[in-house]
Design a protein around this nucleic acid. Structure first.
Lengths: 262, 262
DNA sequence: CGTTGTGTTGAGCCGAATCAACCCCGGTGG
DNA sequence: CCACCGGGGTTGATTCGGCTCAACACAACG
């Protein structure tokens, strides 16, 4: 389904999770074993299935082993905004244990495989797995950072910049999970999903992707994306993978907003 | 500075904080006293001052007593996106104690007054103030919800909807803090700040506000906003103050994105 | 009294949405 | 085996929301 990238190392299906956690914190042998043991409670989800329903009490925390999901909200008139994509190795509902009803839903975009993260989370919370605890904390911070990145895309960037920036984000995240390399990665999204993510129309996503292909910056074939010129993409998208460092522009102000009807 | 709304009850300057915490959780007498005692460590900030610098280690947690601030990021080319406004009663850096460098900055938009929240946070964390602990947790969830609301505005709504929706959010938050009522509230923002918040140009913010005034939905005078027809605004903005409840549209899918160069 | 910041207004342009076909492909069922 | 169907991708024509540019008004301030 997700192409040649997904299974790869048969026998180590939860590898993406371990790989990602390792980049977030130092994980002990015991902790890794604990995570690998999660594969017991595996679960499959069909595309379109809602793992978290907006306004409902939280479900149990899960890790995504394979497939993609989306955190989203749908407006009364049918418009939908995808807040973030949930990729293999990502967690889901970690912070929602004693939380109020979620103001968003999570739906499977592709065929999806998850495992119950509760045992790992418990171990982290009661001090048995400090490495995991730190990794989970880091994971939640990363999530927040990605959310803000996305907000900048939506609020400030052009379609061209948005697509470039978003592809770079996917490349980086998927490489961390052990899927794809510094250029190629699986991209099992329809243009409609991309549109709902990036706040663009389907047609315009299509044309923007074509422009990027025409300019030989990217290549798209059968669910696989290739960044032909990652650096050029980073330049056009003002993409910075790591926490940036700037001189800080602090705009002052004097008066308040006034209105005089002309 | 912020007009007739800000000081009001001289002698109870941190009232907004207490009011807001009360709506988030049940607060005991002792906890309230603890919060009121924070006014010791008051601090003033000039407009433009950066309370949190992007990429820097966290500063201590604070409550805003009076004035407005913004959580924002500035792009290399000068564009800036304001992620959220921080109003009187709001907290600042509650979750950033043992956190990595913030991927955003916080700057004072008006003259600002804050107090050190550390004593309250400590009391909440070590079990002395369970009510505060719950209020802080709720506060962080609220913050996340507002962030997602904002993302929907940026990604899916028109300028007209965005402005209406945003004004409604401000009205609700300020009323909770005890500033303004169900219609009027202080609005010490320049149109440029509004533009950077809503992802619009200054000129277009101006025209959109004028349209809302022309249609007699709002009124703006010397730093005070009045929602003349809140319900109409709610309708046009698809605004829901409380966690919504929908039938859930789950879009299925089949194939992956394909590309055939025509 | 100039200067600066903010709000306002008009003209023109452009990025992106909309509308409407059409193609290709895989699946289905007669 | 093939006609049909539906989802996804592509394309052209057209519209339009929002941006840019440019000027000007007004108030606060030094």
């Amino acid at each position: 389904m997700t192409g040649r990238f997904t299974p790869r190392l048969a026998g180590w299906p939860i590898d993406p999770i371990v790989r990602r956690l390792r980049t977030l914190s130092k994980i002990s042998e015991m902790e890794e074993a604990l995570v690998r043991a999660l594969s017991d409670r595996r679960e499959r989800h069909a595309p379109g299935e809602e793992l978290i329903v907006e306004g409902q009490g939280a479900r149990r925390p899960r890790f995504v082993v394979a497939g993609w999901a989306a955190r989203q909200r749908v407006l009364p008139d049918g418009r939908r905004q995808i807040f973030s994509l949930i990729l293999p190795g990502d967690s889901l509902g970690l912070a929602q244990r004693s939380a109020p009803p979620a103001p968003w839903s999570v739906v499977a975009l592709t065929a999806l495989e998850t495992v119950d993260a509760e045992p790992a989370l418990d171990a982290a919370n009661d001090g048995r797995a400090p490495g995991l605890a730190q990794a989970f904390a880091a994971s939640m911070h990363e999530e927040g950072r990605l959310l803000l990145d996305h907000m900048v895309r939506l609020g400030q960037q052009t379609a061209y910049e948005r697509v470039a920036h978003f592809l770079l984000e996917l490349q980086r995240r998927l490489q961390i999970a052990g899927l794809g390399d510094s250029q190629r990665f699986p991209l099992p999204l329809t243009q409609e999903m991309l549109a709902d993510t990036l706040g663009l129309s389907i047609v315009h996503v299509n044309r923007t992707l074509q422009q990027l292909r025409r300019e030989r910056l990217i290549e798209l074939r059968s669910g696989v994306a290739i960044l032909l010129q990652p650096q050029t993409l980073r330049d056009v998208a003002a993409y910075e993978a790591a926490p940036p460092r700037r001189p800080a522009a602090a705009p002052p102000l004097r008066r308040q907003m006034e209105s005089s009807p002309a």
